[in-house]
């Protein structure tokens, strides 16, 4: 069980990012209280993936601040590394290490970053593989698993590091439809335990059920931010209205 007070709050202030001349994030402000679940959605190219990649330093930004808990990213390398260590990330394409077994995928950071002895790391990894309901796959290689199983391994791998904030970057977009549910179920379970979660996803059923805040982005800006109930019943921004219209009909 994750204690709410052990999770991270996130504060994004006046964030601006350019790719060359292209202004990809425009004046983004977002407050994410500890233990809350935020779903970020919007058309492709709206900057949602870029935004969450800024939260663990995978993308650099030119202006603004990102604060995880009490640590401001980029203040110094050590603090950024610390903040990153408290953040788990799940990628669209899983990004499992294909040359390592499922178990080694999970234990690599435990052993190399935390210096945990092998036996302890393996038992912790098995605990999280059990949690994502694939303990029996521990000794296989990623290529031997289905997409849904691989993504659950990726979630277990991130959880092993005891993160206080989980970032999901379109975690089900690369999956066959019938595998989406097994991944969403794991994510829902995690949400129920009180983990701070930020998910970029188009799974509106998941958003409605799990999120307590929906953020809608368009062309690099947050154009609408509301509770799921408000967002799905009475979206105010025309771009959000047309997005929901195409998605739900």
């Amino acid at each position: 069980m994750i204690r709410t007070d052990s999770t991270l709050a996130v504060q994004i202030t006046s964030l601006n990012k350019w790719y060359g001349a292209f202004h990809v994030l425009k004046e983004v402000n977002l407050t994410i209280p500890s233990g809350s679940r935020v779903v970020i959605c919007g058309p492709s190219g709206s900057g949602k993936s870029t935004l969450i990649r800024c939260l663990n330093g995978l993308e650099a930004y030119q202006q603004g601040t990102v604060t995880l808990g009490t640590v401001r990213l980029g203040d110094n390398a050590r603090e950024t590394a610390l903040a990153r260590r408290q953040t788990g990330m799940v990628f669209q394409n899983f990004n499992l290490f294909p040359h390592l077994t499922v178990l080694s995928n999970c234990t690599l950071a435990l052993r190399r970053v935390l210096g945990m002895p092998r036996a302890e790391a393996e038992s912790l990894a098995r605990h999280f593989l059990e949690k994502v309901r694939i303990p029996e796959q521990a000794d296989k290689y990623p290529a031997q698993l289905s997409g849904g199983q691989q993504q659950r391994v990726a979630i277990a791998r991130a959880l092993c590091m005891n993160p206080r904030l989980m970032l999901f970057d379109e975690p089900t977009s690369a999956l066959d439809p019938e595998m989406v549910k097994e991944v969403l179920d794991v994510m829902t379970g995690l949400a129920q335990e009180g983990m701070t979660m930020i998910c970029v996803t188009h799974e509106m059923g998941f958003a409605r059920e799990v999120a307590d805040q929906i953020v809608f982005m368009d062309q690099g800006s947050i154009v609408e931010q509301a509770s799921p109930m408000t967002f799905f019943s009475t979206p105010t921004h025309p771009r959000a209205q047309s997005f929901l219209h195409t998605l739900l009909h």
Partner: peptide, 26 residues
């Protein structure tokens, strides 16, 4: 794939560990 390095970074691995344990073996 760039995602290999990024997954290592997201897990908090150092650059040298990413090179020696993830990139070079592959």
């Amino acid at each position: 794939d760039r995602g290999q390095k990024e997954a290592g970074q997201a897990l908090g691995l150092s650059r040298s560990t990413i090179l020696l344990r993830i990139e070079l073996p592959q």
